[in-house]
Simulated scan of single mutants.
Amino acid sequence: MNEPTVLTVILNYRTPDLTIRACEAAMREMQDLPGEVIVVDNDSGDGSVERLKQAAAAHGWDAGGRFRIVESGRNGGFGAGMNFGMRAGLSDGSAPDFYYLLNSDAWPDPGCIRGLRDFLVATPRAGFAASAVRGDDNAPHLTAFRFPSAAGEFEAAARTGPISRLLRNRIIAPPLPRTRTRVDWASGASLMVRREVIETTGGFDETFFLYFEETDLCRRAAAAGWETWYLPEVGVVHIGSASTGMRKWKRTPQYWFDSRLHYSLKNHGRAYTLWTTLALIAGTLVWRLRQLIRHKPSSDPDGFLTDLIAHSLRRTLARTPASPTPAAAFPEDSR
């Protein structure tokens, strides 16, 4: 029996220096594994492709057909870029057994890619395996989650001890598991995906530009019987939000509100979407009251509450959920 193959997919959008570092780590970890590394450039338009090609030549990555750079031709967001890379498959035209999705600002530790792959090989019902993620300051990142709910959104926005204790079983981002644990969904920063999951679900819904696309994919996979697991014993270092600038948001971008709304409408319908939005508004008001009492500045982006209300009023009644990307868009294994 042949050893299972892995296609590592790295998405670049105007982060060539970070992407080169991610490639260095990925190529190191893939050297003893059958498969390839593919970098998808999402129409950066900043000379990224040329710099990546120069780095590939300098490191000798492009020798032996183990490394490719492809251009998607548009900036369709995270899911669209990853779909493009997965559709490309291996250089011989076949589909790999597993796809490893790696952020351009993430660098796998020794044994990470192999550990995720071997877990999926040994766990037939597992469709996803996510590694631990930590910052360059060694602080752990919360990357294993429950599916969003009205109670969960209220708790997350309120950020208040008594409420969190009352709703502890609804917390969307609970404390990280210390052992291998089945979770609802996991971050796509370092995520191994079984090929059959992509064939079954059709991959990422490209209606999402950024955010909620992994949540939606894991939810559709769960409905089809696939499990998502978090493995704390393997990990990556992740800078975080290098392409999106989320840490420096002064104002929440429109695409975040669009993605949140599309996820909720698609998976829960209009009535529950309204309920979750009201819960988020109520939780934010609780947090604002606490900050007012403590005389502390708001930690939310400027205008978050008014932007949320305006977006909800403008879009909830007008928007209908879009259909996911059809599974036929992805190649079947031709080996």
Rank of each mutant, 00 (worst) to 15 (best):
P4G: 03
V6C: 10
T8K: 01
Y13D: 03
T15G: 02
P16E: 04
R21I: 10
N42Q: 11
D43G: 05
L52D: 05
W61Y: 15
F67D: 00
S72P: 00
M86P: 06
L90C: 05
G93S: 07
D105T: 07
C112P: 13
F119D: 04
T123R: 11
S131D: 03
V133T: 11
G135A: 09
D136I: 15
A144E: 03
P148A: 09
S149W: 08
A150E: 12
A151C: 08
E155R: 04
A158E: 00
R159M: 08
P162C: 01
N169T: 15
R178S: 13
R180P: 15
G188C: 10
A189G: 14
S190A: 15
E199Y: 02
T201H: 11
G203S: 08
D205V: 02
F208L: 14
F212Q: 06
G225P: 04
V234G: 03
V236F: 00
S241L: 01
S243H: 04
Q254I: 11
K266H: 11
K266R: 12
K266C: 03
R270M: 01
A271G: 00
L274G: 00
T277I: 05
I281T: 06
L285F: 06
W287K: 12
H295V: 11
K296N: 02
D300W: 12
D302K: 12
L308Y: 02
L313I: 14
R314I: 05
L317H: 04
R319G: 00
P321H: 10
A328M: 12
A328F: 04
R335Y: 08
